[in-house]
Structures are given as structure tokens and as C-alpha cells.
Computed example of a mutant assay.
Amino acid sequence: MDMEIDLSNLGTVNTMFAALFSKLGVPIKTTVSPTVLEEAMNGTVTVRPLPVGTSAMGKVEKQSAHFFGVTISEEQAHSGIVVRATSVAQSKFKLLFFEQEVNGGYGLALQEDSQKTGKVTSAGMYFLHFQVYRMDSTVNALAMAKDPEAAFFKRLEGLQPCEVSTLKPGTHIFAVYGDNFFKPASYTIEAMCAKSYEDTTERLKEIEAKILEKRTDLRQFETEYRKALARFQEATTRYTQEKEVVDDMLRERDDIHSSFTTERTITSSLGAGSSSSRYPVEQNKTESSENGNIDSRDKSSKKKWFNLNLNRSDKRA
């Protein structure tokens, strides 16, 4: 389940923990401060004009908002309007869209959390008379972190249709909300008429349709992939088992081959115990012959010395 917290109600310690978890990749979804929403509803906020075709830069405190009024003509409304905010400092912020209430205040209608796109963070709203989508990166984020394959198949599941696709002529209220944990958020906000970006608008329409089609394809492919992966794992397991069986059979075959030999076991007693050793028969014969020759030489030598002593004794006598 995604975490959704109001940073304005957190103390310093809890805010530090939230910032740490966010750095570690835990999706922490924040809400707009009730104070900001109440001030907007009461109409007590300061609204700065943002003419179409211009931009404005600023730095907003955390859990605070800067409000802008974008006034569009009938022709511009018919062509389409785009409002985007970026931060080269990669600040976290929300782009908010408010609708006029009966009491004169402003009610929150849309919000876009900034996302890291390249070297900046950005958020945009596209009122182009066709269905556009926003990417909610927190959808199944924790589950995807545990399964990299699921991260791919669920990557497009975060596409959510924007509730508003057109704007009527008049003044519309947007705001940049500071969503950093501690420091202010720096930003640049700009409003554009789609008439100056007809090719870009058409490309966006085409890529949105392709992404939706690809999302459907991935859902079907995931089923096929899971089945193929299960078969592959089954085949891999069998491969390991078959390899072990073949290795054992060949090892047994080598042992059987080694049993064909002229060696025999000779048991000799040594002291109180006995030990067995294997000697070739021919080697035993050779050693016996050599031992016999040594004994003969020893006896001959003794006889010579004995005769020599006897002869000397006879002469003395």
C-alpha cells in the first residue's frame, strides 16, 4: 500500500525519516497541506498573472504554494493549452489546477507530482481536446522493487487518465506547491498555446495511443512469458538432474574398468595388528629370488671366515 502523508503535520524527526525512506526508493505520496487548500477555498490567496506564451521563475517554501492566473481567449481554448513546471535543481513540487467555486474561492481539481525527467524534475498539464494520461510512479512500486520482471510488466500500469482535457475561455488558476522535505523548491512555470506546437501535439496524441496499445500487449505477453519461464526453469532443473545421472554412470563405468587387474591382496601380520597391501605376483617372485641370493652370500661369507680361522689354528699347533 502506498504511503500518503501530510508533511505539515510531521515533526522534524519524522520528516527526517520520511526523507530517508524516500532516498532509499520507498514511494511516499504526500498530500497538499490543508492550510493551502483552505486558503484557496476562501479565496484569500495571492494570484499572479501568467500570460500565455510567457514563463515565471520562483522559489516556494515547503508546504506552501504560489498561485498563477492564466487567461485564455476562445481561439486559444479551441487550439489547446499546456501548462508545465520544471526545476533544474531537481526540487520536488506539485503542479496544481483549481476550479472556480460558487463562493468565489478555488477548489483543487487536478494535481501532478513532479517526476525526474533527465536532469530536471517536471510536471505538466495538457488540455488538448483528446485524452491524455499522467504517470503515477507509485503504483505497485513496493511490489515492483521485489520483482524486477514485474517492474517491467507493471511499468505502464501507472498510466492514469487526466480528468480534465479541455479549458473554456477565461482565467484559470494554477499553483506550484513546494513538496521538498526541508528546503524551498525552485521552479519555472510556463503557459503555452498548442497552436504553436501543432506537430508536437499530433505526436503526443499518437504516442499516447501507442502506449495504451502496448500496455494491453504487455498484459498478454506477461502471461505467455510466465508460462515460458516456468517451462525453462523445469527444463533447467531436469538438465541438472540428467547431468548428475550421466556423471555418476560414467564414474561407475570407470570403476568397473579398473576392476580388471592382475593385482591381488596380501595380508601380513605386523605385531598385534595386521595390514593388507597389494603387490604384483611377478614382483613377489623377484623379491623372493633376491632375498635367497642375499642369504646365500651371507652363508658363504661366514664359511670363508670360519675356514680361515681353522687354518690359522692348525698352523700354530
Rank of each mutant, 00 (worst) to 15 (best):
L37M: 04
R134L: 12
L156F: 15
T188H: 00
I189G: 13
G105E: 08
F21Q: 12
E282G: 10
P161Q: 03
K116N: 13
N103P: 04
R203Q: 12
A89H: 11
M3R: 06
M192K: 06
T200F: 15
D255K: 01
D199M: 03
D2Q: 08
E213D: 13
D254K: 00
T201L: 00
T200N: 08
Q115V: 06
E4F: 09
R251H: 10
G43D: 01
G104D: 01
T261L: 02
K210L: 05
C193F: 04
P280Y: 10
K92P: 00
V245A: 11
A230E: 06
T31P: 02
R134G: 14
Y187A: 07
K210C: 04
I28A: 00
V176D: 04
R48Y: 08
T15W: 00
T12F: 06
T44F: 11
R226E: 13
Q76S: 06
D295G: 07
V82D: 04
V164A: 06
Q63N: 15
P161V: 03
K299N: 10
T46S: 15
Q131R: 11
Q100L: 15
K168I: 03
P27T: 07
R278V: 12
I28E: 01
Q115Y: 01
T267H: 03
T216N: 14
A40I: 00
K94C: 06
P148T: 02
Y133F: 10
K94N: 09
G170C: 00
T216V: 14
T35E: 13
A150E: 11
L142R: 15
K59P: 05
S269V: 07
S91P: 02
T86M: 02
E4I: 05
T261W: 02
L10N: 11
M144G: 04
T286G: 03
H129D: 15
